[in-house]
């Protein structure tokens, strides 16, 4: 048995989510609970290490290689850590028409990290992201679980980053 990466509280939440996910599918289709399980693990730990992936694999009776392959396919699953504040800025057409690409550059310069890197203080990471379904209020950005889609401007972006710096 692979050791669990969770502390007891995390374990309880993870177990509950996994059980609920399994209950949604026919019993012989437990693999369908894989994405929910990965989401639950990432919510607890911030990202998915090799150990975490192996643990999820054991719980669902799947090969670890299979689990890693699935996790790697989806961009929301992080196979390496990100900054405390993970800034994802949309650069697809509706956003790009209104300055999305420039905002991405601005964010990188401001926090001192290139796309897909973490800032020296660990507080920030920045990356371009595919359309966030907020094109009517473009340009759009997502920070962790929060949407900032009220027509982002360079000034608003600066203010948001300052705010995030203050609160951690």
């Amino acid at each position: 048995m692979v050791a669990s990466p969770f502390n007891p509280e995390q374990q309880a939440r993870f177990d509950a989510e996994l059980e609920a996910a399994l209950a949604r599918f026919p019993p012989e289709r437990s693999q369908a609970a894989l994405l929910p399980a990965l989401h639950a693990a990432q919510r607890e730990l911030g990202w998915l290490s090799t150990e975490t992936l192996s643990y999820v694999a054991t719980r669902l009776k799947l090969w670890s290689t299979r689990v890693r392959e699935v996790a790697a396919f989806y961009t929301l699953f992080r196979l390496k850590p990100v900054g405390t504040n993970h800034l994802q800025i949309c650069t697809n057409l509706s956003c790009a028409l209104l300055g999305g690409e420039k905002l991405l550059e601005q964010a990188c310069t401001r926090v001192g990290a290139r796309p897909h890197e973490i800032s020296a203080d660990g507080k920030f990471s920045v990356e371009p992201v595919s359309c966030l379904a907020s094109c009517g209020t473009a340009p759009a950005m997502q920070v962790n679980d929060r949407y900032f889609d009220e027509k982002l401007t360079p000034e608003k972006l600066d203010a948001i980053i300052s705010e995030l710096e203050r609160v951690g």
Binding site: L35, H39, Y74, T75, L76, F77
Partner: peptide, 8 residues
């Protein structure tokens, strides 16, 4: 409700 994970 099933949640995807970022893949167009």
């Amino acid at each position: 409700v099933h949640r995807g994970a970022g893949a167009y």
